[in-house]
Design a protein around this nucleic acid. Structure first.
Lengths: 314, 314
DNA sequence: AGTCTCCATAAATTTTAATTATTCAAATAA
DNA sequence: TTATTTGAATAATTAAAATTTATGGAGACT
């Protein structure tokens, strides 16, 4: 590693003298005294073993070496200014990238709206959405590949206390029926009715499926008595299956808003059962938080938060 | 004038850490202690209001802002290195330009050889030769447009004591005759013989002409008695005229070497007269002396110097 | 748990840079 | 010419900044 033979301050002084044609004027311009300027240039000349200025007459004139150095000087100082600007832009969210993680469900039905809102406010920050399993998403947050993530399931225990997990909204997992199903006419269904239904479910690897199973079990249902007609690995496929009358399912309400509005699918109310899960924001507290990530958490997410979410208090 | 938000040292440290992945290793690399590195990065982060490194785990990882800054950092440091190299080259004569002034005579017959020798030794220094009148050459040296000059005449009085004038060689102004001229057979001619000759001379503006006139006058000749056949403004033209038998002339020996060797022109020895002028190096002592100029004066010129020249003692 | 590595922090020291005051030299003006 | 002004160099002092030594704490590896 070679020593640096000059400092940016010296270059700045050099540039000022060259522009002003005088040590004194340069000193005034830089708000320092004239000897400060003289000494710095002397140091510079000593270190580079060159003479930079001809101080003969009234004006300080550049020597050949001086002109050469000045060229580089201007280039270097310009680069410095540019660097500053780029950093400022990053600070003021006029640049940079926000990397968001999400599970299949949140990534498909929730994130597009959130990201849309964010981009509307900060059009100069580019956003990258990575949809992966809850597990993998968690790890990405842990090792910094992802700035923040929204998940609907449970993190592996080891990650749970490594990361900051903030529930910000509840997502109902609604019992949905084909619109021409007999139960669709009832005002509400009972737990017992569930055993009579054929279910189309997500495959058992899925986080959402696990959540549903756990919630049903916790509320006293014997899930092994539920009849599973088929297992699919896509919510869209399940929605189609339900609409075709193949069976019932528990689906996140966020994923069926359009179908409910169109009436092609029926959402049943269960008298004595509420299947709800929490949507959580996960971040890595032991890592640097980008300004964009900060803003997303503070300004965007609360607009999607339930009333009881801690985010509402920010 | 904006303040500089960082120093080159900080950038150097940043680069080292990024390369080594560790504050400590960077410190070792730069031969400083680890806290020095830590503090500088902290200052940098404070001044730019960004976080540059994620110091969570075993390795120090760049944040987004850090990566951005590093890009500029590398560019800036590269420019610095380049600047150093350019300066070094200039110091070691691997670049730069030497501007030499000369009068017509020296410029035509002497400088090409000198410059040839210089370029042979320092092929990376480009040389610019400016041939002008002695007067104009003198002024160019005075105001720094020319690094050094070789002249054969007298400088205007005001320049004389402003510039450094070093006689480095004597140049004989030989009496030359057509080879078939009757006097060419004599071993030597006398002053008196000059009055019988027809002269072809430089025009009266020329420095060389003035020098010749002055020298002849000083040695007791009545120059108005000398018959001037014609006045030309080019040495080459005069040489041709002499070779064609049109008359005699006083010419610098340096300008007729080829013709003497070929025998197409005759150089007469005058018994009681030596017409010699001094060739002088002129420089401006109150101005910066480039390395190239220094070297030219110390290494090249002495090879063309007469024994009694002060340059021989360097 | 224990050890090791790495980074942060604090206090002291050293180094560097800036200021004030003064001198010197050249350019301008009387 | 001499006096005055202006710009730069120098010296001594003061102020600021970076570096070091010493120490503490947190995470990683055994």
């Amino acid at each position: 590693m070679p020593e640096l033979p000059f400092t940016l301050d010296q270059l700045r002084i050099l540039k000022a003298i060259a522009a002003q044609g005088s040590f004194k004027k340069a000193a005034d311009l830089l708000y320092v005294t004239q000897p400060a300027v003289s000494l710095q240039i002397q140091n510079l000349e000593k270190q580079l073993e060159i003479t930079i200025f001809d101080r003969g007459g009234r004006k300080a004139l550049l020597t050949e070496a001086g002109r050469l150095l000045l060229e580089y000087c201007e280039r270097i100082l310009n680069q410095c200014d540019e660097a500053c600007k780029a950093i400022e832009d990053l600070n003021s969210l006029k640049g940079g990238t926000l990397v968001i993680g999400a599970s299949q469900t949140t990534g498909t039905y929730l994130m597009p709206r959130m990201i849309g809102l964010f981009r509307q406010k900060y059009p100069d920050v580019s956003v990258r959405l990575q949809v992966h399993s809850t597990r993998r998403t968690g790890w990405s947050v842990a090792n910094g590949q992802i700035d923040l993530a929204i998940i609907g399931g449970q993190l592996p225990g080891d990650l749970e206390n490594l990361l900051q997990v903030i529930p910000y909204a509840t997502d109902e997992l609604a019992l949905v029926l084909p619109s021409k199903h007999p139960l669709s006419n009832k005002k509400e269904v009972l737990k017992e009715d569930l055993y009579k239904l054929n279910f189309v479910t997500l495959d058992s690897q899925s986080t959402t499926r696990k959540v549903v199973d756990k919630l049903l079990k916790d509320s006293g249902l014997e899930i092994q008595r539920l009849k599973i007609e088929m297992e699919l690995n896509s919510l869209e496929a399940i929605k189609n299956a339900v609409q075709s009358g193949l069976g019932a399912s528990f689906l996140p309400v966020v994923s069926i808003e359009r179908e409910l509005a169109a009436g092609t699918i029926h959402k049943a109310f269960i008298a004595d059962l509420e299947v709800k899960r929490e949507l959580k924001l996960i971040t890595n507290p032991s890592r640097y938080t980008s300004r964009a990530s900060e803003v997303f958490k503070k300004n965007i997410l609360p607009q999607f938060a339930s009333l009881e979410s801690p985010l509402k208090n920010i």
